[in-house]
């Protein structure tokens, strides 16, 4: 039994069957990649996992609990963090403030009204945020506006924000899309580090095969809204069906 279980999920948009009978099981503490050609339903599936979309039928459970019908913030509080394709950060706030927010969310839950004590007075929260920034090597940018960061740094910041919450499952939506080679490699290194240092399950949706094969322990290939095959990277590489559906056209 994996930490994330998707069973018989269907999702239609009008006449389009975006997801057809998707079954997926993500084992704990591995990197599980979901790949597939454009329009295969990867993003739809991801949105079903985080509460943005509700599947027409089927079930999605995280650690034995259903996530269906829950809002994104409730699902986050269950221990699932999400990194977006284009980094979603608080652009108007400083890097430090960006880090503080998830720390509060982790400690105080989805809403808590403390309007009198200043942020600076919350020593443990500030410490935690600073530590995390040191860990991702951004301590020199602590007072910068998040919007003025480079794209790579924004991605780094977003990941740090997610990691600070110590999620049990980290969802990554094409984390290297549109990145230069060097940035991509940096991201891969960062993810490898995360994987080695923490007890964390990572589910990654990716286009870039280089990224997938350097990280993934397990790969699910999605085509036309249904899982084609699920296997280890080595076997996926040699699978003729996958080649036909995806790698063939990409190569």
């Amino acid at each position: 039994m994996g930490i994330l279980e998707v069973k018989g999920v269907n999702k239609r948009f009008g006449g389009l069957q975006a997801l057809g009978d998707v079954n997926l099981s993500v084992e704990e503490n591995i990197v599980h990649a979901i790949i597939g050609p454009n329009g295969a339903g990867k993003s739809t599936l991801l949105n079903c996992l985080v509460g943005k979309l509700i599947p027409d039928t089927g079930s999605v459970t995280f650690d034995g609990q259903s996530v269906l019908g829950r809002t994104p913030y409730e699902i986050n509080q269950m221990g699932i963090s999400r990194v977006f394709q284009t980094p979603e950060i608080f652009g108007d706030l400083t890097v430090f403030e960006n880090m503080v927010i998830p720390a509060f969310a982790k400690r105080d839950g989805s809403f808590r009204m403390h309007a009198i004590e200043s942020v600076a007075a919350e020593k443990d929260i500030c410490m935690k945020a600073e530590q995390m920034l040191v860990e991702v090597n951004m301590q020199d940018k602590i007072q910068m506006h998040a919007a003025s960061l480079s794209r790579g740094d924004k991605r780094r910041l977003e990941m740090a924000m997610c990691l600070l919450q110590e999620p049990r499952l980290l969802l990554l939506d094409e984390p290297t899309a549109g990145m230069a080679r060097a940035d991509t490699n940096n991201t891969i290194d960062l993810l490898k580090e995360i994987k080695e240092q923490r007890d964390i399950t990572i589910c990654i949706i990716e286009h870039d095969m280089h990224v997938v094969f350097s990280l993934a322990d397990r790969i699910t290939v999605l085509a036309q809204g249904t899982p084609l095959v699920e296997d280890s990277p080595e076997n996926i590489r040699g699978n003729p069906k996958v080649r036909e559906a995806y790698l063939g056209e990409a190569a």
Partner: peptide, 19 residues
């Protein structure tokens, strides 16, 4: 700070576990 975060990016706020 949370209020400023609402203005800045509600999407991220939601996915950070805050309502």
């Amino acid at each position: 700070l949370m209020l400023r975060a609402v203005k800045s990016n509600q999407n991220r706020l939601n996915y950070t576990g805050l309502n």
